[in-house]
Amino acid sequence: MERYEQDPVRLVVFDEPLPEGAERDPGVRAAFDDVAILREQLAFIGTALAGSGDGAETAAVSPPPRPRSRRRRVLRPLLAGAAAVAVLGTGAAYLVAHNGVPEGEERAKPTAESVVACATDIAEGTVAKVEQLGGDDGVRVVLTVEHAYKPTTAQPRLVFTAQDSGASYFRTGARLLVLVSGRPGEAPVTFREGDRPPGDFGEDVGKVRDGLEYGRKWVEKALPGSIGIDCSDPG
């Protein structure tokens, strides 16, 4: 693995696209991990000390779990007050929302194969930049692509817009698998490193350690069956 000569902290804190290959450098990955910890701790400390607006300090505080190891850092979001999407990831939340469709209505239920078929881009990578759009238009996310599923000859960066849950789901340095839909108005589906996998709400893809790994297996399982599916039907 090519050693990255530049100071990895510079790459993490500055608003600049990552140079080619930087995302594979262990020093850069470690810097991203540490900054992700700092972000979560700032959110926790600030919220804990600020307390509620009525002047009472927080009664009992639950700090975010300590990261287990540098190599397989599993960072979980602060759960208190976090939206479901920030806890489960939009991919798992999508599956939760679309499960439980009554028998006989399979045509209306989007399958994994149809979601994959109707995605224009499917890629895994690291969030390089997040920009707030005006009003309720959400955020614009720039992802440095590390692995492209669709198309296989994807560009080094994938840019998409999404609604942020308000708990800063999309953070610089976060590792995501993203499916950008080709259907107008349909939000992207994402699976984030460190999030809980969907468990009973999801499909059986075997044992996984987090939402990101679940997403990889979910996509890989659906890809063969997605070929030839017609995306013109919005159902």
Binding site: I45, L49, A59, A60, V61, P63, P65
Partner: peptide, 27 residues
């Protein structure tokens, strides 16, 4: 000091005490 003065931290959560130490270090 202000974090420590908060009412008891919930150390029943997984990794509670270690997480507390991390938060105090950042503070």
């Amino acid at each position: 000091e202000r974090l420590t003065a908060l009412r008891p931290w919930d150390t029943t959560q997984p990794g509670g005490e270690e997480a507390r130490v991390l938060s105090l270090s950042v503070a």
